[in-house]
Design a protein around this nucleic acid. Sequence first.
DNA 1: TCTGGGGTCCTAGGACCC
DNA 2: TCTGGGGTCCTAGGACCC
Length: 424
Amino acid sequence: MIAMVDCNSFYASCEQVFRPDLKGRPVAVLSNNDGCIIAKNKEAKALTHIPYRDPLFKIKGLLAQNDVTLFSSNYTLYGDMSDRVMNVLREFSPAVEVYSIDESFVDLSGMTHVDLNAYGHQIKNTIVQRTGIPVGVGIAPTKVLAKLANRISKKVAHFDHVFVMDTEERRIEALNWAETKDIWGLGKKHVERLAHIGVFTAYAFTEVPLAWVRKEMTVVGERLWRELNGESCIPFETLPRKKKAIGTAKSFGKKLDNLPQIEEACAYYISEVSEVLRSQKCCCTQLRVYLTTNYHSTNDVQHADKTIVTLSVPTNDTFMLIVEAKKALKRIYKPGFKYKKVGVDLLGLIPEEQVQGNLFMPEATGDKRLIKAFDAINNRYGKSTVSAGLSGTSKSNKEWELIKEERSPRYTTQWDNLLEIGKG
DNA sequence: TCTGGGGTCCTAGGACCC
DNA sequence: TCTGGGGTCCTAGGACCC
């Protein structure tokens, strides 16, 4: 059996851990740039007339009327809280697959003599006690069924956030309860296609001929179908997979039309992603840069373009990548547009030790000492203690920077706050 | 004025290799 | 006159996840 453990309203719950005064009151967390709502706690979800995707400026009045407390997103805090939750989980099984920031699969296959329902409650209670984060626990024979069990644990009140799918009757009952859209892996398009042939429940989906599923929904659909029928075919992965791409793209705080400002943002993003690349001990063989105007805007003339550079020698050196990115950016930048976002992706990642030099430009592999010193300083004294000048300095006027008006304090990662909490 | 960000997997088609 | 068969790699587009 596999347990799927999922934190409730994770980002909102993280904020509430440090704001007990907000207990019982509606809380919502905002996207980057405070653009729209991306997480709501239970009380905020109950205010059904407040939508997720609407831009903040359109619903600000509504939020104020309902006394909703807003937070800008604080991913450092959520990442830290996530680590705490996952570490508690590891006490319950030697095999834990961290699936996302707020979800894990827990392998319970050895526990044949354990009362799984009681064990599920024990997991749930221990996590909330140690971290303050409420969770739901779904236990079933396959990953897709465990995801469904988790959903039921939360949606059907009398299960009290723990549901075990341990009999064939319960599996059938669960499949009949679930709509196709409730199934992990069935998105909007597939749900529509299934509705077209009269399939609306998970159970009905499991009755669709496999040949149709394979043809219309590829091998991905076939796996879902088999998993729902109780046949496990999505492997359990305890070790985190090596990344295949590392990218970042963030909307600017305001629209920009001049190249130097965009270059500065681009250089800053390159330094962020190349740091991640080095932490994985990898180099990239390709670099993608893209640039877009605000596609929501109906007044502005639109322009979007992208380009991929294949590097003469794979690298993870911030400075070399900035040089390449600037060249790439110049190729796709056209003056006279109001740009909203620049993005960079590092592609074709290979382990550092597999980098092959270039016969014609042996010096292209660069001097590793500088970048090593660079990382050592930033690891010791904090992010951006030293940075590439091209990515802007603390004194430069970074018009591209994100807006975060409501960010909570760095409760778990800033020394002053740790001291305060220590005193408390 | 203001509308998120970071990923993965699969397939088809084109270009190319011997 | 007659023009194969077995592959790989890359890219774009689609679909999905949190």
